[in-house]
Design a protein around this nucleic acid. Structure first.
Lengths: 199, 199
DNA sequence: AGAAGCGATGTCACTCGCTGACATCACTAT
DNA sequence: ATAGTGATGTCAGCGAGTGACATCGCTTCT
């Protein structure tokens, strides 16, 4: 009997579970505390109780920790576009997809704020963010082509959609008593329409 | 008399002139020949007859060599906007500035093509390109604000302007018998107008 | 003319991000 | 039992980038 108790008490498995999650947490903690540049991968690994090498088995590089969620967001957006009625215009399809993504992001505002403050303080992280957004735009364009949208329009819609999202996000994140993020997105799509018309 | 001749023949100054230019040339040559990742800074320095340390005195990092011209482009665009009549709409001001920039780029198409093929082959370089474009957009937005354009509109116009430029550039660079680049830009601004309206 | 300072370069040592190769060892399937 | 398998550790090494200090022709001041 005592044997089974001991087995459950300590070292049932060889390693603590959820290595990736621990690394992610450790990284965020240190990035927030000291800033991105001032924390080494060795620091993160130590904090998570793992080796530096293991960090790089879970994340392609030091920056990628902060962008792990972008894959899920991308899938959400693409499937949202796929399930939008065919008669909806391309730009409106993009707008709706971004609104629903915005609604989801809204529930994690505190996390988003923290994350964004880390990114804003470091140029390398901004670069990574931009390429993630570009990849998002490219996925959106693919989704539009899937609906039969021809090509300059498909790229133009998705890329300007991302622009609207970026601007909306910037405003939403900097307000201390923020209004509805999806609504903000909608407003900026309207503003885009006005501005593109040359008003 | 022979003294002066000797002075002119060799070693008038302590160093060969135009170190930065030589580094730039050497880097381009090697990036094209072997690709960006496969060339080390030591390679570049050796090719230019300088030390590795000197490379980093002229360029902030290995990537920056390819983006040295972006500063001039930015100034051109900003001054172009500043000198556009006040009654012209924001989006039209952006469009005109990009058209003139496009006209200039058109004269260096071969160089642009080479440069772009290097960038397209490497993710780090794409990241750098994106942040340069973002900085361009931010400068354009400042220029618009200088004209009294209010803020969601200023950001929206400049960022979508950059989007149009990106899409136009991509098409222009991939055509083997390219049409007029400024005209292509104009066409895509028209397409943007249509697409934003929801057609 | 001589001294002092300046500016572009070189040299060296060092940190850090990242990778390849190989070892370890609990767990699983045969 | 035996032979994998998979997540980890260890170690050696490369390349990017930085700080400190030396060099030395040129300019400027006295």
């Amino acid at each position: 009997m005592s044997v089974t108790v001991i087995n459950y008490d300590r070292d049932v498995t060889r390693w603590e579970p959820n290595a990736r999650g621990r690394l992610e947490q450790a990284a965020m903690k240190l990035y927030v505390e000291r800033g991105f540049e001032q924390t080494t991968v060795a620091d993160i690994a130590k904090q998570a109780g793992l080796s530096e090498r293991t960090f790089f088995r879970h994340f392609a590089d030091k920056r990628e920790v902060l962008f792990w969620g972008s894959g899920a967001l991308q899938e959400l957006l693409v499937s949202s576009i796929a399930s939008t009625p065919a008669e909806v215009s391309p730009i409106e399809a993009i707008a709706r997809a971004l609104e629903t993504a915005g609604a989801l992001l809204q529930e994690r505002r505190d996390g988003a704020l923290l994350r964004q403050s880390v990114i804003a303080a470091n140029a390398e992280l901004q670069e990574r963010e931009l390429i993630k957004l570009a990849s998002l735009a490219s996925a959106l364009a693919d989704a539009l082509r899937q609906r039969g949208v021809q090509d300059p329009a498909a790229s133009l819609c998705s890329e300007t959609g991302i622009v609207v999202f970026k601007v909306a996000f910037g405003r939403w994140i900097s307000e201390k008593n923020p209004q509805s993020f999806p609504y903000l997105i909608r407003e900026l799509f309207d503003e885009l329409k006005a501005v593109a018309a040359g008003d």
